[in-house]
């Protein structure tokens, strides 16, 4: 039971299955800004064959009471089918993808490639003075790799935000 005097924050990865219709993202984002909830990351894409359903993954933080509120508020939006607190409901996989551009010559290039190999980042574009690495993994792993690229010649980063799914046979769409 959430306790109002509780001030400890926790992270929550929330998956929301919604009707794929115009304005749905604005509804969800407006809910978070209007009620002062955090969004650390938000991703959305349609997930079924006839593109009627979208799945939104939101990483947020708050007290237990606030996170309960966030879920209840999401659930009362008319186009929302299901809300699931992956953090609370059991083991889940969370992944993020990043495209990372590193610019440099000589020894720096070799160092970048060695580290990329260790982190299982793939080279998806190369010129004589640059690489673009593609990397998928947990957010912290991406952070670590990007941090290591900083002194080597990190030029630009593009990240997808977190997508997540529960382990095991059960799930939101079943």
């Amino acid at each position: 039971m959430p306790d109002p005097s509780e001030t400890t924050l926790r992270n929550a990865t929330i998956a929301v299955l919604v009707e794929n219709e115009a304005g749905i993202l604005a509804r969800v984002v407006g809910l978070f800004s209007g009620r002062g909830y955090n969004i650390e990351s938000l991703t959305v894409a349609s997930v079924d064959a006839d593109r009627r359903l979208s799945r939104i993954t939101i990483v947020t933080s708050g007290t237990d009471m606030v996170i309960e509120q966030i879920k209840a508020q999401l659930d009362r939006l008319v186009p929302v089918h299901k809300v699931s607190d992956l953090t609370l409901e059991g083991p889940h996989i969370a992944r993020e993808m990043a495209l990372i551009k590193v610019v440099g010559r000589g020894e720096h290039r070799m160092e970048a490639l060695r580290l990329a190999d260790a982190f299982r980042a793939r080279v998806v574009d190369a010129t004589t003075e640059s690489f673009v690495f593609e990397m998928t993994g947990a957010g912290e792993k991406l952070d670590a790799f990007i941090g290591l690229m900083q002194p080597i010649g990190l030029a630009e980063v593009s990240r997808t935000g977190v997508v997540a799914i529960a382990r095991g046979p059960g799930g939101l769409q079943s």
């Binding site: 959430p2 109002p4 509120q69 209840a72």
Partner: peptide, 9 residues
Amino acid sequence: PSSINKNVK
């Protein structure tokens, strides 16, 4: 359900 445990536990 969003009215429950919003202000008062």
